[in-house]
Simulated assay, not measured.
Amino acid sequence: MSTAVQRAAGVGDLLRKWRRHRRMSQLDLAVQAEISTRHLSFLETGRSRPSREMVLLLAEQLDLPLRERNQLLVAAGYASVYPETALDAGTMTAVRGAVRQVLRGHEPYPAIAVDRHWNLVEGNAAIAVLLEGVAPALLEPPANTLRASLHPEGMAPRIANLGEWRGHLLGRLRRQVDHTADAELAALLDELTALPCDEPIPSFEYPGPGDVVVPLRLRHGSGELTFFSTVTTFGTPLDVTLAELAIEAFFPADAATTKMLRGEA
């Protein structure tokens, strides 16, 4: 078998895998990409080798993360398009500055930056209130923020609504696994799902009286702290590292938490 045919077969298998993962028919994808179903069939079976532009077009229609778009290109015999730059590289100086500005500007409230596997990249000084009592082993790099949250030696014993919060976090992770088909994230989901939890885990998120978001209710020496969070990502990333970076900022959900975090209690 020639190298060109091998490459066509390889990228064809990946295209078919992702199309099925997105629950799309050949007709669905062909219509979105404005190509014929015959041509798409030839690409998937390896009878035709896609151009570089066709790979990127189909990856866009399949809503693939940048990392997976690079994998498609390599499978088709082309070089990767999207760089994966270390966060400490010189070209990422502005990015690091932006992340740290957001983190520090959020104080005295906690905020963290995480990578695609929820490993802690950086946090502000206020995350100490979240990490009180967490076993040191769970905080050793690369510290996984989901594991530290739900592990019985992590934050879990201090989370007053553990079942609700656990259901929320596992739901977010499950949706991420479904979108990325990332094997490491799938393994993390299995690991976290197996952790013990004495509280019932709701099948769906349902608001309590006065709730507009799923709160994190955290036991603290001065009383219960209540938070909600927002997630920030870069709007127009063209770098894999940047596309996979997220900042989660925790806000006080009531006046008592605000006063405590500001040192006014």
Rank of each mutant, 00 (worst) to 15 (best):
A4R: 12
V5S: 12
V5P: 00
A9H: 10
G12A: 09
L14M: 14
L15A: 04
L15Y: 02
L15E: 00
R19G: 06
R20W: 02
H21F: 00
L29N: 04
Q32A: 15
I35M: 13
T37Y: 00
R38A: 01
S41Q: 08
S41I: 06
E44I: 02
G46H: 02
G46D: 05
G46A: 10
R47Y: 07
R47N: 08
S48V: 03
P50W: 12
S51E: 05
M54I: 13
M54Q: 06
M54A: 07
E60S: 14
Q61F: 00
D63S: 14
L64Q: 08
P65C: 00
P65H: 01
R69V: 11
L72A: 09
L73A: 00
L73T: 00
V81Q: 14
P83S: 05
P83N: 09
A86I: 06
L87N: 09
G90I: 03
T93M: 10
A94F: 03
A94R: 15
V95G: 08
V95H: 13
A98C: 06
V99S: 06
V99L: 13
R100C: 09
V102M: 14
P110K: 10
I112N: 02
I112E: 09
I112G: 01
R116F: 08
R116I: 07
R116W: 11
H117M: 05
W118N: 04
N119S: 06
N124L: 08
N124C: 03
A125Q: 12
A126M: 07
I127L: 13
I127F: 10
L131C: 01
V134I: 12
P142Q: 03
S149I: 07
S149K: 09
L150V: 06
H151I: 07
P152C: 13
E153R: 07
A156K: 07
A156D: 08
R158W: 04
I159F: 00
I159Q: 00
A160H: 13
N161M: 10
G163I: 02
E164R: 15
Q176H: 06
D178H: 11
D182N: 11
T193Y: 11
T193M: 10
T193S: 15
E199Q: 15
F204E: 14
P207H: 11
V212R: 15
V214E: 04
P215N: 05
G221Q: 14
F227A: 06
S229L: 07
T230D: 06
V231S: 08
V231M: 13
T241E: 12
A243Q: 11
E244A: 07
L245S: 02
I247Y: 01
I247G: 00
P252H: 00
A253E: 10
D254R: 04
T258I: 02
L261N: 09
R262G: 14
G263D: 04
A265K: 13
